[in-house]
Each structure stands twice: as C-alpha cells, then as structure tokens.
Design a protein around this nucleic acid. Structure first.
Lengths: 341, 341
DNA sequence: GTGATCTGAGAAAAGCTTTTACCAATCCTT
DNA sequence: AAGGATTGGTAAAAGCTTTTCTCAGATCAC
C-alpha cells in the first residue's frame, strides 16, 4: 500500500530558519523580505541559511495576513478548449512571473455548477477572476458583477463598467479580404457561421465594405460540412463562380477546400480560400495549408491576466472593451507571396 | 477609472456570525461544523444567522490550521489540450463535490518553468499533484518523487512505487480489430504513428495477434498527411488491396479516408476505416464520420482525482499502473451495424 | 559629559478558523 | 441530599507570516 509518508509535518517554517540563524522570527522575516533594518551580514546569513535548509514561505499564512492569495480563477464554458487553452496559456505566461497561480474552472453552461465554482474560488480568496467564453455576445450563466474581487472578461460579454477583452473581428475580416484583393481576387464570396453571432455580423460588415458587395454572404453553421455544402450551392448557381472564398472559420474553410477539390477546382490556382481562427490542427493539416486570420488569443490572455493583476493590486484601470488586432497567417491556400516567417 | 471598491474589507468573518448570534466564536465554529456539544436550537440559530448574513469560511485560515488546502495542482505538458482537457474535466468533475479546486499549470517541456510551477503549488500547500502528459513512455521534465505531497500520474510515465493511470491500448486495439473482423473484413492494414511510442507498439502487438499478421504495419507520424501517404503506398503496391484500415489515431484515419475518396475507393463499402482517440473535432467531421476507439480520458481524470484525494486524506492506495479499458465508438466509417446510442 | 539620533534586533499583535481545555449549571443516582 | 455525570457554552492556543512597536546600545553634536 502506498501512503504519503511524513505528510506535511516535515515542512520547514520560518521558525526553523530563525533558530538555525540564531535570530528572532521577525528578524528572519525581515531579512528574507528585504524589509526592516539590520546589518547586511545578518541579512545575508539568514538568506543563505534559509536557502540551505530549503525554506519556502507558506502562502496560506502569508495570504491570510496580506489579503492576497496570489491566486486567480479562470472561469470558462468553452469545454472544447478551442479558445480557453490559448487564453489560459497567455494568462499563465503573464502571471507566473508574479507568483500567481490559476484555478481553472470549467462550467458547462450550468448555472449551479458555475456558482459552486465561484463560491469555492471566493472561499479560497482569489485575487481576481477572469471569465472567458466562446462568443462575444453571450454571458456566462453566473452573475459576477458584485463580487468584491476584480473580474475581467475575455471573449465573453462583460457587465456594465467592466473591462472586457476581445479580438477585433472587423479588423481581422478586413485583413483577410484586403489580402484577397491584393493578390488580385475580385469575386470574393463569404461563407460563415450563424448570423446571430455578433462576430459573424461584424466580419460580414467588414467584408461588405472591402469587397464592395459583389457576392452575398452565406450564413450557416461552424462545421466542415457547411463549408462543403456552401461551395456546392455556389457552384450550382448559374453565372460566374467566385475566385476567392473568405470563410468564417478554419473548419468551414477546410470543408470548402475539400469540396473544391472534389469538383476539380484547384486551390489556390483557380480559387483562393482564406480561413479564420488559425486553429493549427485544422489550418495546418488542410491541403493546401490554410491562409487564415489569427485572433492572438494568447496575447489576449496575457493582457487579461495583467489587467486582473493590476486591479487586484489596486491600480486603476480604464473600463471598457479592448479590441485586440488580429494577424494574417499566410500559408498556401490563397497563393500570392510565399509564407512569411 | 475602474477600481475595486471596498476591497476585501467587507468580508464577513466568523466574528460577525458570533456577534449576530450572541455566542462565542468557538460556539459559532462548532455550530457551523456540526461538532462539539450544544443545544440544537443554538446550533440552528447560528446556522440560520450565518446563512442570512452570507458567511463563508476563509479557506486560507482553515487550511493553515488543518493542513489541507482543498486544492490540487494539475501539471501538464500537453499544450494542445488534446489529452489535458478531458482529463482536467474528469478531475474537476470528481473533486468539485469535495470542495477541491484545481490549479492548471501548463509547462512546455521546460524544466525551469515546471520547477517554478511546482514550487508555487507547494508554497500554496496543494493537497496533491496530478501529472499528465501526452504519451505513456515519457516523463515530465521535473522530478516529483520526493515531494511530501502525494503525486498521481495520468497518461505519463510515473516513478517507482507511484500510482499511474493510463488507457489500455492493447485492449483498445483489440476492440478495433475485432470489430473489423466481426463485420467481415479480412485484409486489415495498420497505419500508425512513430514506432518509438510505447502505445504504438502495444497497439501493433494487439493488431498482430487479432488480425493474424496478414499485413505489415506502416509506422509514420501522427498527421493526416501520413494517413494520406500511407494509403498511397498501400494502393500502389501490386496485389490485393486491404479491405480495412486500422489507424493509430483519428487524424491518420481522416487522411486515409480522404486519400481513399480521391482514389475512388468507397468508405465504408469497399474499405472500412477505424480510428483511435475519438477526438470529436476530427472523428465527427470526417465524411463519413469515423468509427473509433475512445480512451475514456474523462473517466481517467476522474479516477486520478479521486486517488490523489484519497492519498491526501491519508487513505492507503495500492501503487502500480492502472489500465482503463477503452470503448468502441461506432459511427459510419466501417459499415456494419447502425451506430449505437 | 549629556542629551539626541541612529542602528540592529526582538516582542507582540494581527489575520481567521478550529480544537482543546475548562467551567458553571443542571441532572441523575442512591 | 450529596457526589458524580452530563450539558451548554467560553477562553485560549495553535497554525505561519508580516508588521508595528519598543528597546538597548552605539554614535554624534555641542
């Protein structure tokens, strides 16, 4: 049988450090935290001894006093992890240097479960909460508006007077369509997701502006099969076919590429296809690999992390919605110049 | 400017409860924890008042005393989240009822980063650590063997005398090949990942046993394009073609299905294709949707969570490797009977 | 040489909860 | 009715740090 031998009894406290250095506890504490007044040789000796015996301060005791737990909570309803994982990586990346750890709480659009997780986080005195979702125009199924800890929203709808991070879908769509125009495409169709998504409408708006309305927008669902079917619809129609497809996400783009290949249409020679999301697993494995728009989710997470940290430390932060610019990832599904980077 | 108004000063402590109920702090504590002796009306009154004023015990203070933080750490080097997210979901699912929250620490095969995260978790007095990876025969780049908190391994190689959870790849492969045999296939080829993966060898072994060695195993990489290329190789060879493909993961299977379609071979009529992983995003979007083997990662996470909890509570646990059975997911890429469930 | 300032360090409180020890009043037993 | 058990509750300690206050001794000014 396996048993955790010794338990936590062996943990070294500041008492041991003080005893080993033959100083008082307060002196030891001040030496280690570079506070207070004392001789530099004393300070160094305490530090040296603490390091030698492997002392690490107990974050619970420290947090109890300082009201900072160096812990934040990440709430998400994105079970798939399509958005959460990059955002999480960015948050973690930004906060690990500050000694902050992240509780990940996956709530499956279940208000009761969400409340349990929020309560647990508050009990554990999190310094703040980041709420993330998978679409900009939906709220998480739990009210975070009067929490006495700071809350930052990322990729989900925030409350009045909160700070919310999102990608700039309009700019991203513009980037995509301008690229298609730049490489000489003129009959650009837009195959995208459900029209009730805010980001779908925003991207469609940008598409109309840049492309000049030559083709209608095909709204559907976020799946490969919709991309496939949309191409069938377009190519069954009489008249000139599009020479480029701007797709609402990489899955749709992939379905479209497959459908074009089955029809004998060459990508990118005959038709350029551009995706959205830069979901590597889809975009890079498509043949040819997809040129697409990256929403810089990791950077978004990083900024959200730094913001919640700022709020937790009492630094003032301007409320409002922050739109982060997207970035064009050039691969081979559009033709044009060679991939950069 | 946004500022966290009030900070945590407003938090209600047990002092407020005691004062409101006109009892001592110790009485209040005992009433709320159902310990000690007191009149039932006193106990009820305290509970009622605590609920009314919204008292929640401070987990930091409680943990400082009890040596239990009701927190565990999840360490992973699986950046993609292919394995981590389901495992994480299972862990969270199993532990949320016990009031345990999970720190997610993504280490990118970076030993220094891993050490930072482990130290941070230990400072925060986690009750245990679950280490997860993306392959069974690799270690995480950090030593967790002498930690004085329990460590459980999931989907990564553990240390001597630890408890490790993994899927039963042999049984899973057997499930797949037996299914192909059952629906009448006889010339079953196996296209899989790199031979240096332990699970690849294990699956190949089961394949050989069940299929009776009729076809060689094609080792490659875990990508669609390898699945595609492997089919080309098989179909370029002279002689009879396979009537079934057992693929090492869903991505390979998908590449194979695409290649077959391009060759005019019908799936599942002419050739059955079976995948491995049940990665919905790939398996369900393939045309036809893939029959595949599910590794029950969520259940694996659940068991790992309960095990680390048991160890944290001092309950003895049998060390060793626990193989969890896989499950066959029948979709349409093999033919045979209709999808079940 | 005396009062004022500075230096190095320790004592104690605070942060919040749980647990142990203890006490006064009531009840039971014989 | 007296001694012992039971009941209902309180005081205090413990858990680990950080911070504020205090203090003794040394240094300095004049």
């Amino acid at each position: 049988m396996l048993n955790i031998s010794g338990g936590k009894r062996g943990r070294i406290t500041i008492h041991e450090v003080a005893a080993a250095a033959a100083v008082s506890i307060s002196t030891a504490s001040k030496a280690l935290n570079d506070t207070g007044r004392m001789g530099s040789e004393t300070r160094e000796r305490v530090k040296r001894i603490a390091a030698a015996i492997g002392y690490r301060p107990n974050a619970l005791a420290r947090g109890l006093l300082s009201k900072r737990s160096f812990t934040i909570g990440l709430l998400t309803n994105d079970t798939y992890g399509r958005f959460t994982l990059p955002v999480m990586a960015g948050i973690s990346d930004a906060l690990v240097d500050h000694g902050v750890s992240v509780f990940l709480c996956a709530i499956e659009d279940d208000p009761a479960l969400a409340q349990i997780h929020v309560d647990a986080m508050l009990d554990k005195q999190v310094d703040g909460i980041i709420a993330t979702g998978k679409r900009l125009d939906r709220r998480l199924p739990v009210d975070l508006s009067n929490l006495h800890v700071p809350v930052v929203y990322a990729f989900t709808e925030g409350t009045q007077n909160s700070v919310t991070f999102r990608s700039d879908d309009e700019q991203g769509a513009r980037l995509a369509v301008e690229w298609l125009v730049k490489i000489g495409r003129r009959r650009i169709a837009h195959i995208t997701g459900p029209e009730d998504f805010f980001s779908v409408r925003e991207r469609a708006g940008a598409y109309h502006e840049v492309a000049g309305h030559r083709e209608p927008v095909l709204y559907g669902v976020w799946s490969e099969s919709w991309g496939h079917e949309a191409v069938d619809q377009l190519w069954r129609r009489p008249g000139e076919k599009p020479d480029a497809l701007f797709c609402g996400n990489d899955q749709i783009a992939r379905g479209a590429v497959d459908a074009l290949r089955e029809r004998g249409v060459k990508v990118p020679q005959d038709v350029s296809v551009i995706g959205f999301d830069n979901w590597e697993i889809v975009a890079a494995q498509t043949r040819p690999p997809l040129t697409t728009v990256d929403m810089e989710l990791k950077e978004l997470g990083r900024q959200a992390g730094l913001t919640v940290l700022a709020l937790a430390e009492g630094r003032p932060v301007e409320p409002g919605v922050r739109k982060l610019p997207c970035r064009l990832i050039v691969r081979q599904s559009c033709g044009g110049e060679a991939p950069q980077g």
